[in-house]
Amino acid sequence: MTSLLELDGIAKRFGPVRALENVAFNLRAGEIHALAGENGAGKSTTMKIVDGILQPDAGEIRIDGEPRRIRSPLEAQALGIGFVHQEIALCPDVSVAENIFMAATAASRSPLMNYAALERKAQVVLAQLGNIDPRAKVGSLSISTQQLVEIAKALTLDARILILDEPTSALTEAETEKLFSIVHRLKARGLGIIHISHRMAEIFDHCDRVTVFRDGNFVDCLEVAKTSPQEVVNRMVGRDIAQLYPPKLDSAPGRPLLQVEGLSD
């Protein structure tokens, strides 16, 4: 397979804190590549470097085999990189359609905005994800629906590399299934998808390879079909975990430690 993205020797420090040290990663066209690791392992920091949000202190980024210095998210978009962040970054006081096409609208030289055309274009993208009104104000939507709007926004970019940072953390099971059906269609079109996740079920149901980070370092890259959740977790924590799912308490429970009744908010 063609290598879309390669990272070699990436390092990053924040003052005295070493966030990344000699990180390696590669993404092929037409694959879903999981990035796994405990909190603080360096997953999001690495992807922020790929997206131009952060600059590496050392190392090289190659796109299609060519060394690149990505100075901003705008440059990343120009190189075909789309990033769906875990933290929702939408404008709550404008419509779904305006949020989806905000970058294109800002770059337009037209003195007036054609809202009807904008909403029609947004509806085409939103139809892939669910029943979301392109005219609705984003602030009126649930968190899970706002996450789907973020994903729709990324899909409108002419992206060849799509980074999904914990995209299902706020989604329902039905929304998650829709998301992965879209991700697999994008994979079939030749996109390379980076899926950051702690969820072993997602990694083993949908991903082709998994790269493991630990404490800001590259640990291993594994073919999902040739490994197991136990092996991935062992590499994440740096030791053998005897039982991924330990047995439940087999004795009678003791007195209640916490009890809540009639709680309301």
Rank of each mutant, 00 (worst) to 15 (best):
residue 253 P to A: 10
residue 183 V to I: 15
residue 37 G to M: 07
residue 202 E to Q: 09
residue 88 I to P: 02
residue 98 E to L: 05
residue 200 M to T: 02
residue 195 H to N: 11
residue 58 A to V: 02
residue 180 F to T: 10
residue 224 V to E: 04
residue 246 P to K: 15
residue 9 G to T: 04
residue 248 K to V: 10
residue 196 I to L: 03
residue 123 Q to G: 01
residue 111 P to I: 07
residue 136 A to R: 04
residue 77 Q to M: 13
residue 77 Q to E: 10
residue 16 P to K: 11
residue 222 L to T: 09
residue 119 E to I: 07
residue 54 L to I: 04
residue 156 T to N: 08
residue 150 E to R: 00
residue 250 D to P: 02
residue 33 H to Q: 09
residue 216 G to E: 01
residue 12 K to E: 01
residue 239 R to P: 08
residue 256 P to V: 15
residue 180 F to D: 01
residue 4 L to Q: 12
residue 140 S to L: 08
residue 214 R to H: 12
residue 149 V to S: 04
residue 151 I to L: 13
residue 242 A to Q: 12
residue 37 G to L: 08
residue 105 T to Q: 14
residue 185 R to Y: 00
residue 153 K to V: 04
residue 39 N to E: 08
residue 31 E to P: 10
residue 21 E to P: 03
residue 197 S to W: 13
residue 81 I to K: 04
residue 163 I to A: 12
residue 40 G to W: 13
residue 148 L to G: 11
residue 119 E to P: 02
residue 160 R to V: 09
residue 23 V to R: 01
residue 13 R to Y: 07
residue 255 R to C: 01
residue 154 A to N: 05
residue 32 I to N: 07
residue 21 E to G: 02
residue 90 L to E: 03
residue 227 T to D: 11
residue 213 F to L: 15
residue 214 R to M: 12
residue 206 H to L: 04
residue 94 V to M: 14
residue 125 V to A: 10
residue 104 A to N: 00
residue 147 Q to P: 00
residue 70 I to H: 02
residue 15 G to V: 11
residue 185 R to L: 06
residue 212 V to T: 10
residue 156 T to L: 13
residue 27 L to K: 12
residue 180 F to E: 03
residue 18 R to Q: 15
residue 108 S to M: 03
residue 79 L to K: 03
residue 248 K to C: 01
residue 128 Q to D: 15
residue 234 N to M: 07
residue 241 I to P: 03
residue 7 L to M: 05
residue 240 D to S: 15
residue 82 G to V: 09
residue 94 V to W: 08
residue 207 C to F: 13
residue 239 R to A: 07
residue 214 R to G: 14
residue 6 E to D: 09
residue 176 T to W: 06
residue 69 R to P: 00
residue 57 D to S: 06
residue 38 E to W: 05
residue 116 A to Y: 06
residue 187 K to N: 03
residue 32 I to K: 09
residue 56 P to Q: 08
residue 254 G to P: 05
residue 87 E to H: 12
residue 205 D to F: 01
